[in-house]
Design a binder for these strands. Sequence first.
RNA 1: GGGCGGAUAGCUCAGUUGGGAGAGCGCUGCCCUUACAAGGCAGAGGUCACAGGUUCAAUCCCUGUUCCGCCUACCA
Length: 773
Amino acid sequence: FTMDDGLSKAVREVFVRLHEEGLIYRGERLINWCPRCLTALSDIEVEHEETKGKLYHIRYPLADDPSTSLIVATTRPETMLGDTAVAVHPDDPRYRHLIGKKVHLPLTTREIPIVGDPILVDREFGTGAVKITPAHDFNDFEAGERHHLPRLAILDAHARLDPEGLQKAAVESTVRESVQGLPVSKARPKIEEQLQARELLVKVEDHKMALGKCYRCKTVVEPYLSPQWFVNIQPLADPAVKAVEDGRIRIIPESWTNNYLGWMRDIKDWCISRQIWWGHRIPAWYCRQCNEDSTIQTAPTTGTKRSYSFSAKATPIVALRAPTHCPDCGQHDFLQESDVLDTWFSSALWPFSTLGWPDQTSELKKFYPTSTLVTGLDILFFWVARMIMMGLKFMGDVPFRDVYIHALVRDAEGQKMSKSKGNVIDPLSIMGDYGTDALRFTLASMASPGRDIKLAEERIEGYRNFANKIWNAARFILMYAEGIREHVEIGDRSFADRWMFSRLNRTIQDTTTALEQYRFDHAAGYLYQFIWHEYCDWYLELVKPALQDKASTEARRTRATLIQSFEITLRLLHPFMPFLTEEISQALPHESTQDSIMIRPFPTRQSAWEAKDIEEQFAALERFVTMARAGRALLAYPPGARLNVFAAAKGPDERMSLEKLHRHLEQLSRASVHIADQATWPSQKVLRLVAEGLTIGIGVEGDVDLQKVLDRIVKQAAEAMKEVKRLEGKLANVEFVAKAPADVVAEHRQRIATLTHEQSMLASSEQQLRSML
RNA sequence: GGGCGGAUAGCUCAGUUGGGAGAGCGCUGCCCUUACAAGGCAGAGGUCACAGGUUCAAUCCCUGUUCCGCCUACCA
């Protein structure tokens, strides 16, 4: 970014304003530091790794009574050279009386105080005494502040023992000479040896701990004392906590809310400076005249580091532009701060900086705040929380209403994908193999809340097939689209059309509701089910005969319905499969003025389409057809052979439905269908099949394997028997009948009745079959 | 250490006012039936991790255990 770039302008504006309010300060603090990259690291840049280490128990003799000593435990014996105190718990009867006395710090000529600190010390852990090294440990730094202890840095920026620091820390010269210039890993055994030789090392035990490592180079990070820039975060965090507490911002799924609140309430000042090249350079300048003593020359060792920096004592001038002269000395020789900003500092401004802020643009008015932010959990704190804080601070309003936390996509082993780990699944390659829409649909369908996604190729392949299915349906429709189309009122449409519209209506409603609840998985499921298993499997099959005679009224009307319904379906599917739906919708017959599908309205529910009675009739048809097909498979009739199928309706309503749908029944079951009472069926050569209250008979012709059929019927009867026994068992329980809701009990009775009827039918089929064998 | 999530068909995963266990892929059988074999039709397959508890009734609620994963933390 150039300095005139809008984003940079916003960053500088924010930096300067925060600084003016005292919310940005510069100071010497401990930060996570990579001794190899020579830069500060933010929390997100540090990876923690379980490591086997050692716990060293070291004896610190009392200064005025060397026969008595405190034993402290540490995982980092080399840092003891920088100790400036030993802490015990003020209420600990073992040590209480020692507070205020001094111990002699081994390997040095220093004496350091014993302090009481209830925060740092856990009485139960180790010996109950702990060393304080403010320059090399975060907690010790805090403890050092509480007790006004000096900070003795004994490591340099490369995490080597620093000769000057060792000198200042009054380390014995022999010790000093043996360790100076050594990296931590080499110095540690030397220190261990020295302590051993003086019999001050009480014991060494194995110890598990989590070591922080630089995300880039895997070097163990060091808490490092250096001048850095910070944001005083509490004044920004408080409003951001409130915004979520009072519901102005909703986190979805809700379970992450506590995570957010917990983190925000316990937030620490934000180190925003980085010692790297790439980034927004901090808008601060130092007068060379006034800060001569604070200038630190550093050799450009790697070629990526600037050659100077300033100590914590230096006085910066923070401004939007380079100052023309120094307000103190009037000189005009400046060096700009060499540090750049943490990348999340500018990211935090994204919701408004991208809209032109600090200018009051029309985009800013229109799009701030936005409705939903979709993001991954891993940056909830680093990005989302900071956008909320900065948005509230500079815009006076939340940057978004809903935060949708989506799942993390992991690799096949369930590992988190990361650039540095190299286990990234390349979306471009997946898209090449299966298509962009298939990948998108897969991710939507697997986006169940609170659960991560292990990307499974089989699922993607399945949705690739789904896309293919839609292509083929489109081909079918285009094939029959030619010709006059006649639009009629919904009530006058055919059975198939009315059923399909009723189902489409339901699908629109379900999909919309699911989207409103951020249940993309449910929405994808509804669409898949409707398009494949209702629209393609049943509707398109049902209308085929009508389309055959192209000139007929029925064909004219069906063509209109086909195109209308498919176009609506495509719009409904468009957010999930944008490319395919656009392509097909352009191919369908349409007005030349019609917009791209992406800006057409999303379908809405039409109550006129709802047809419960039609759906019930369809259910009867589906039961019949499925059973006829099963019978065909059971009797191993070839698909081409025409069957004779008898159907007995349960009542007059069903009989009417079946008669009305007679043509469809014959078409879909490829059979001659006879609707008649069972009593009138031929007594011989008819196989009876029963399921869900419907009984059909299939004419038995030719040489068929009746044994297979018998096995099936016996098995089905056994299953029915088992279920009846289970239900009767429950009904026999007086407590069940007394305490269960009446409708549940009634339902149980109803199920028994149905099953019993089924059983008797099966028994008669069985008897009949045995006689035929 | 603390917190959170997961364990359901061979695999990847759905499944809430507790009451008959689902999908996709894979598998078996039949079928290239003029949209589609990346397909159609029909099937097989599950003591819902384990042990207790609450309840008339538990995949679902509670407790504990085992295993896996994530976040977080200074246990020196």
